[in-house]
Design a binder for these strands. Structure first.
Lengths: 173, 173
DNA sequence: GACCAGTTCTGCGAAATCCGCAAGGCGAGG
DNA sequence: CCTCGCCTTGCGGATTTCGCAGAACTGGTC
């Protein structure tokens, strides 16, 4: 019914062997990847259109999307540039820590002003992106809430001046 | 018909005076903010439900969402953790530059491996997030493509080990 | 090979949503 | 007064969503 994509799908695309060891995360086959890719282009694209593109029925796409959402593998959301949207201060904070770094990362995760937390290798152990109402708020979060966390050795801040690019199209290359 | 939200809306929410000067971006009133907020929670929420929440008709919400999309104020997309999705290397790169920094940022923006570019104040002029297939690819992008850009004085890389948090809920606080 | 349990896909109707369009209200400005 | 921009209401038709039942495939076991 829907082109020749169907014929090859069940034969080879479902192969999960290439996943290797990437942290025990719920393995994704090529079909789910293709679905995610469709939704990276347009988060509101109808299931039927996605199904046609990846070679699956509408209902099957719906189930897989729901599972991906439930598993937390992806989220479908509106993204903006907070700076554009208005009167806010944003910054990236590099953190040097000692002891249980992951616990510090968890503490950051619990802060509502923190949008993005990633553990890194390099001269910072953690990078955290912060979105605030104004300078006072930003200062408060960085100096009072973050620097006072046990294990935080030092921090360095990079206040955002202008967001130049923000995409989610890694699947489309 | 839709609760008391309507009554107050036209009276005060449409006031654009608090926008201040934030870069000549298309000013948003409180209603559009509320719509964005709804879509930050669920990018697929139906227009009627959004309308009920913000006190607008379904058709009006539809028009505003379309305009916000067209203007590039927001995008509705699926977001994932590339590391979770599989076999990739990701890094944040801090860049020190001389001369026209914005031009360098534009050059970074043109690279498909670069997902995120922001100009900052601090010890880096630019922060760029990179998503790659593997180590070789990452090395190639950083050392060959970025460091060779005219005006780039130095770079420092932070390879991602683990993404701990990634949200878009600034509207919901 | 046969059987079975679990999972995934397909194929439907029914309900809800999307989408374009037209007619009218209403406030802001010229 | 008139225009412009935006919202509302209402409408129908096309499309999409959603739940469910049956079929198909997978992996494990005997």
């Amino acid at each position: 019914m829907h082109s020749e994509a169907v014929a090859s799908r069940s034969a080879d695309q479902r192969d999960p062997s290439r996943e290797s060891r990437n942290g025990g995360s719920p393995q994704l086959d090529a079909v789910s990847l293709a679905i995610i890719q469709q939704l990276q282009e347009d988060g509101r694209r109808p299931y039927a259109a996605i199904g046609k593109a990846v070679g699956l029925s509408e209902a099957a796409v719906r189930q897989r999307v729901q599972k991906l959402l439930d598993q937390g593998v992806m989220q479908i959301v509106a993204v903006t540039d907070p700076l554009t949207v208005g009167f806010r201060r944003q910054a990236m904070v590099g953190i040097n820590a000692e002891g249980d770094v992951e616990k510090i990362a968890d503490a950051l995760t619990d802060m509502s002003e923190v949008e993005y937390v990633v553990m890194t290798a390099g001269s910072f152990d953690i990078l955290a992106e912060i979105v605030c109402e104004d300078d006072d708020h930003l200062l408060d979060v960085i100096n009072k809430r973050i620097r006072s966390l046990p294990g935080v050795r030092s921090t360095e801040s990079f206040v955002y001046l202008k967001l130049k690019k923000q995409t989610y199209m890694w699947g489309t290359r």
